[in-house]
Amino acid sequence: MINKIKDPGVGNASAQYAKRMLKPDGSFNLKYQNKPRKFTEAYHFLVNISWFYFFGLSFLVGFIINAVFALIYLLIGIEEITALSGSVVQDFFNAFFFSTQTFTTVGYGALAPQGWLSGMVASIESFLGLMLFAFVTGLIYGRFSKPRSAVRFSEHLILRDFKEHRAVMFRLVNDRKSVMIQPKISVTLMLSQPNDSGEYQNNFYLLNLERDAIDYLPTTWTVVHELDEESPLSGYSNEAIKKLHGELIIMMSYYDESFNQEVHKIHSYVLKEAQVDFKFVKAQNFNPEGTLILDYDLFDAIEPHKS
């Protein structure tokens, strides 16, 4: 019996020109409009952006803060820190260097505040620097300690003959050397189809899998959905399946010994990208010493399948 289910959370609304629901990286293909910005979301933003943007943003904020304080020192009078150079640009750089030394609490001693006003500003800046460094340190720890899945999904979705029927299949692998404990997976087929009114809507089907859970995963796992009489795709030809406005939404979870907790990973494939009559190249074999070898260069490799 075909297992049609209710909306799992992505919504029933669709359109003839609707794009895939999930991006290849597992994030939802969603744009927010008129969404109010909240300062409380800053932590979530800073923890989830890439390391490149995180450090780039950190250096930019640090530069702007020091530049602002350098201008303040110029307004107070650079002579309260060091002698006038006769050049505004050179005075600004002297103020900027002093600001950097104060902000980082390095204090080389070559430049020092000599008036009460510059000393007060320097005190405020050094306190601000300590606060921001503590904040950035907490963010770095949060980024390192945040549980992240090590699951890598195959680049290709395959559609080929399998046993007495056909099957769609993909495979996954652990990108770390740790072992995934009790991984389990569910695959939902989302089909965007017109209803009786001619409007497109999403229909959802929970697919039966050859295996939806294993005890541990040290190597690769090929996930197979057979197109038998209980499959919502059984009545379609290979060409018709590729023309369907359909997407496989995959949810995987497992216990990660590195983070000592359960970790989740979402991924998706669109049916139109399925490779017909191909199979995965074997990515593991034994060397002459009898040790099992997993070749990651072959993980995404496919070859023609001969019936």
Rank of each mutant, 00 (worst) to 15 (best):
V136M: 13
A301F: 01
S126K: 04
N208W: 14
V68Q: 01
I302W: 02
S307M: 05
A112Q: 10
L189A: 11
D297N: 10
M190A: 12
A283H: 02
F103P: 00
L30K: 10
G11D: 06
Y254D: 06
D175C: 01
E257K: 08
I250S: 05
E303C: 07
L233E: 01
G86L: 00
G235Y: 03
P113M: 04
I266L: 15
W51P: 07
N34G: 02
F170M: 09
W116S: 15
E289H: 14
S87H: 06
I124E: 00
A13D: 12
G235N: 14
K23G: 02
A213I: 09
P183I: 08
Y43H: 12
M21A: 12
P218K: 01
S307G: 11
Y216N: 03
L233S: 03
Q182N: 08
S307R: 10
A122P: 04
G107A: 09
I241P: 02
S186I: 14
L271W: 02
F103K: 06
N208D: 15
V61M: 11
V276G: 08
V224M: 03
F97D: 05
S154K: 08
M120H: 01
T104H: 02
I250Y: 10
Q33H: 08
Y269S: 01
F69N: 05
V276S: 04
Y254R: 14
L57C: 11
P113N: 06
P24T: 04
I185Y: 09
Y108N: 14
A240M: 07
F55D: 03
D215C: 04
V223E: 06
L57Y: 14
L209K: 09
G290H: 12
L130F: 01
S58T: 12
L22V: 04
A95N: 09
Q33V: 09
T40R: 02
W221N: 08
A240S: 07
I250C: 07
I181A: 08
E226S: 00
S237Q: 01
K31I: 14
K38V: 03
F59E: 14
R160A: 12
A213C: 09
P113I: 06
E273A: 15
F170D: 04
H305W: 05
G62I: 13
F98S: 00
D212H: 12
Y141K: 14
Y17L: 03
E226D: 00
L191N: 03
K23I: 10
V223T: 08
K242F: 07
L84S: 07
L217Q: 08
F96D: 09
M190H: 04
F45R: 14
A274E: 00
S27T: 11
N287T: 11
Q101L: 08
V179I: 15
T220E: 10
G107K: 07
I181M: 10
L117N: 07
